[in-house]
Design a protein around this nucleic acid. Structure first.
Lengths: 204, 204, 204, 204
DNA sequence: TGTTAATCGAGACGGTACGTCCAGTCTTTGG
DNA sequence: CCAAAGACTGGACGTACCGTCTCGATTAACA
């Protein structure tokens, strides 16, 4: 079995790549993931189908990179410190602030359709799922882990707590409510999560 | 516009229904969700395609009912109390036990493929997602809520805690790790989740 | 290697078949053979592509059957004796009459495009070529052979002449002029061919 | 609308031209006409596609010139008199000899695929067909016409016979049998054609 | 003999059609 | 008279080539 020669990336059309990203994101937002066909992306981007298949292996792959690109742009637009979690010394306040911002983002329709679509595809398509997690999700989670480690240094979190697990106490519930629509999300909800996570639900 | 007359459920072939469930579950397990086409289910079940479309609206719908059927059978096979959470008076122990059982179930390959597939489809297909949540997920979650309420009565959980939120502290992290493969799951992990959730991560 | 099960011809849609024939012939006439794509035939016939591929192996195959159907219809419309060559006892006159009719037919635009297209495809595609010859061309040629044999019985053609070869003296020149456009065709031309073929070009 | 500037023929790469001819003829012979794509010719010739499109308008055009080149080479290789018909004074013998040589050539696999392919394309593509006829076919036919005119001068063919038509009596049948595979060709067959053409099929 | 402009190999591009697969509907036939 | 079988329209898939369009890198004629 011979692989066909890899295309020459230095000759790649930047214009086409941007157009494809834009078309993919727009279509997922407007028509939903299932109606976002490779053919429709190509047509909307004014691009031949082969140009998509030359550089990506599937529509999920296109969407993943389009979304990463979007996230990168958004981060660069937002400020120098892309997605750092503030460290004012007040852990509860810092986490609440970041989670409130996350709630805003999750409810932003520009982000909702593509990230939901990617998450869904990632569940079933293991390769894509690992990409999704390692390139999008885990970096975000590591920011929380870092903040928790800093809090440990300041004595605001117990030393024997594993930050990588601890962060899931407030991140995962929010993720599940949003992804699976098990219940609505709100500032009050995330504030509550932070309180419960910090102090537990058992009587003190 | 007239709806087509609803099919007469009393004449429905029980044998075909069972065969379709079995075929759908087997195919999802063997070939994965995307290759599980309605045509393949019909062929494997020895059934006409129309027989599927007469009774279900999509392959996701078939799979949902097949899975509910499977879950029901498993529950009935397991014992009288289908999925109740034990109440020994020791909340931490009870939760750890149930979560350990859940870990076992999540790692059972018979359950993995279909439930992952359903969850994925539910992310993107809102109608199916709501069905999935209300018929499968929420009933499970309510068992936890009930156990937490019982713990509140026994003074093991603070009165001002919302059980529906509190349960997410340990359920959602497990769900996310499994669904999105963000990290491995184990008994130690779920035990830790229960500890953190009960007592918080802040110094006591 | 397993062949896929042959489709059940008894369930075939007569309406679709007719629509496909009509579309194929119309497109070849209007747009030429290369622009007559399977996709275009399907679209014009209001038919799914698969319905074409289910019953034919290529557009050439479709066109061959469409043309045979057309020829059959034309023959049935013309009279009871489909394509017989008259036998008035005057061989020269009979041949000239039939060849003049052939000239008319070859110049009829309804016939020209499809038969030219089929002949061309048959040159390069041996399987189709043999079909074309055996189902369309050879039956016609056998009519000439029969007429020549009858002439032999009447003493108007030498006994030692092979009718299958002799008929080519007037048929092949006409065919070549028409197919390859080596020179124009006319009644005078075919009349001349008959004269030369009967009496030779050497001095008597 | 301006035509693009004509390429400068003086800078043309002779090596590429030869490589393209060779690749085209080889591919038609090996893979058949439909699989002989411009891309394949370019790849095999070690040439950019644009180099083909710069000098030719289509693959049929390439093949036509490649074949003319081949024919020219063959003629030059064969002897000084490229394709003249001998004139020994015995018309029948001369024609039989030339036709026997033609039979040999038509059965030579080196010639068969490309000439059949060109003839086929010429049927459907009128422009190419006229090129094919005027540059390849008609010059050959004119040699026969000349020989027949010489025979008329010698009194071996009737004065009132049109040589351009007469030659078709033996040339066209051979051409048709070969091109359309209506029947096999052989020396006996072409000898017979000459006999019939000279003396007719009617009793003398 | 060095300059320079066109041609060259290479291959990405926007497109069109291919032949396949499956969705969801419609039709026929046997139990 | 329902269900199996499967043909139907429709449409997306991923591939193959088309003919056009850049790219450097020769390469051959002219300065």
């Amino acid at each position: 079995m011979v692989d066909k020669p890899a295309p020459d990336a230095s000759r790649r059309s930047e214009k086409s790549r941007r157009a494809i990203y834009a078309a993919a994101l727009a279509l997922v937002g407007e028509a939903g993931y299932p109606k976002t066909t490779v053919e429709a992306i190509a047509a909307r981007a004014g691009v031949g189908k082969q140009t998509i298949y030359r550089w990506w292996s599937s529509k999920a792959d296109v969407l993943l990179e389009a979304f990463l690109d979007l996230a990168g742009q958004a981060a660069r637009a937002a400020g120098h410190q892309p997605d750092a979690i503030p460290d004012t010394g007040d852990l509860a306040a810092d986490l609440k602030a970041v989670l409130r911002a996350t709630v805003d983002e999750l409810l932003d329709p520009r982000f909702e359709a593509p990230s939901r679509a990617l998450a869904a595809e990632g569940l079933v398509n293991e390769a894509l799922g690992r990409e999704f997690v390692s390139r999008l999700l885990e970096p975000q989670l590591q920011l929380y882990a870092a903040r928790l480690r800093s809090a440990q240094d300041a004595g605001h979190v117990r030393r024997d707590v594993d930050p990588r697990i601890a962060l899931e106490l407030f991140v995962s519930p929010l993720a599940q409510r949003w992804l699976q629509r098990t219940a609505p999300i709100s500032y009050a909800y995330t504030d509550t999560l932070v309180e419960y996570a910090l102090h537990g639900i058992a009587p003190r």
